[in-house]
Structure formats: structure tokens, C-alpha cells
Simulated scan of single mutants.
Amino acid sequence: MSGFLGPLDSGARVPPAQQTRIAAFLISAHGALARQFAFTLPVSLDAAWQTELNAQFYRETEIVSLLMRATTWVPDLALGYMVASWETAWLPAPIDEIPDRRLAQAVHLATLAHAVHAGIRPAALLPTEANAQDPFVMALRRIEFESGRLLQAQILFLKGTDLAPHRDAVSAILEQRHASVRKLWRETLANIGIEAS
């Protein structure tokens, strides 16, 4: 196993089979976030943290759109099963410790988004000799850059005063989400011969 994508082709591009798996995983994760942000958005914004939901919805949609266009796709029969397991992992779990349903949904989304943006660093898989002008390489770097920006908003919300009474519950949920996302990401990488550190 290697710690990087490859071996690269003669144009220093990532092999299409690896592109397909990586992009499918990222589209599943960011697509789930986009869908859930869309369903969580209220008709009118009445709390400061709700304005961030709107911005994050559009950012997640942009990531999915970018990956769909930048990836060199090839048929992959294993994706059907894998996507089903990924999609199940993104589903919201009830949070009994937070009685306000809207706030609980926002916590679910913020912890999932935090785990996805902090735990998945796709550009770190690129070898230094990867073609910097390749759309897939540029997309992975762009996603990592955007993830860093989005992470700041999630941290502000999760550490905000609205959640102060639920700090222990939020910390436990965040830990579980990180462990789940890391496990899925490592399994995805292992299936294409990448050893995640």
C-alpha cells in the first residue's frame, strides 16, 4: 500500500479508477450535507446561526458540482454497495439531550460537517509530481481549501452560547461522527491501495 494516489500516468494524472472512488465518496458526503442543509433551511431566518446554513448549503453544492465535472469517471461495480453504506452513515441520529428539534438538527449537521471537513483531506493524498493543471488535482486542492473555511463556521456554532447547556452531549456526538467518518474514509482508501495515516 502507498500513502499517495497513483501510480500516476504519463501525464502525471491520477488513475481514473482512483478518481472515481475518491470522487464518489466525496460526492456522497458533500451531497448529503447539501441535501440536509437544504431541508434544514427555514423559510425566513430568525437566528444568526441560520444565515450560515444558507452559505454552507451553496458551498456544499459547489463542491459536488466541481467533482462531477473534474473527475474522469470509469465503471465501478462495487460503488453500488459502497454508496449505500456511505449514505446510511450520513443519516441524522436522534439527539435526546437537546429537546429543541431545530437546534438538534443543526447540531447533527454541524458535527457531520465538522467531521467531513476536518477528517477528510483529499489533497494530502496527491504526490508532489501530480499534474497541477489536471482538473481532478485542482478540484481536490480546492475542496481542501474550502473545507478549511467551512470548518471555522462549524467551530463557531458548536462552541457558541446556544449550545453551552448541551456541551457534553455535543462533544460526545462530535467524537462519534469523527470516528465514523474516519473509518469510512480509511476503508475507501484501503480499497484503492492507499494507506491513510
Rank of each mutant, 00 (worst) to 15 (best):
A55L: 10
Q56R: 13
Q56A: 12
F57T: 01
F57K: 15
Y58P: 00
E60A: 15
T61L: 12
E62R: 14
I63L: 09
I63K: 12
S65C: 01
L66A: 08
L67A: 07
L67R: 12
M68Q: 14
R69G: 05
A70D: 06
A70W: 07
A70Q: 06
T71E: 05
T71Q: 09
V74T: 15
V74M: 09
V74W: 00
V74F: 01
P75V: 10
P75L: 03
L77S: 15
L79V: 06
Y81A: 15
Y81F: 02
V83E: 13
A84S: 15
A84W: 04
S85N: 10
W86C: 04
E87R: 14
T88N: 10
A89W: 00
W90H: 12
W90L: 09
L91G: 13
I95A: 06
I95Y: 00
D96S: 08
D96Q: 08
D96I: 10
E97G: 11
E97L: 10
I98Q: 02
P99M: 05
P99I: 01
P99S: 08
P99W: 01
D100W: 06
D100N: 15
R101V: 14
R101I: 02
R101M: 07
R101F: 02
R101C: 00
L103A: 02
Q105F: 00
Q105E: 12
V107A: 06
H108S: 13
H108P: 00
L109A: 05
T111F: 05
A113Y: 01
H114W: 13
H114R: 13
A115V: 07
A115M: 06
A115W: 02
A115G: 03
V116L: 05
H117G: 00
H117A: 08
H117L: 03
A118Y: 03
A118L: 08
A118I: 01
G119Y: 00
G119R: 03
G119E: 09
I120W: 03
I120C: 04
I120T: 04
R121D: 08
R121P: 05
R121C: 12
R121H: 11
A123I: 01
A124G: 05
A124C: 07
L126P: 03
P127R: 05
P127T: 02
T128K: 08
E129R: 11
A130G: 05
A130P: 07
A132K: 10
Q133D: 14
D134V: 03
D134L: 03
P135V: 03
V137C: 13
V137K: 00
A139G: 09
A139Q: 07
L140W: 06
L140F: 10
L140R: 04
R141K: 13
R141V: 01
R141P: 04
R141Q: 15
R141D: 01
R141Y: 02
R142K: 12
I143M: 09
E144I: 10
E144C: 01
E144H: 09
E144M: 08
E146Q: 10
E146H: 07
G148H: 04
G148C: 06
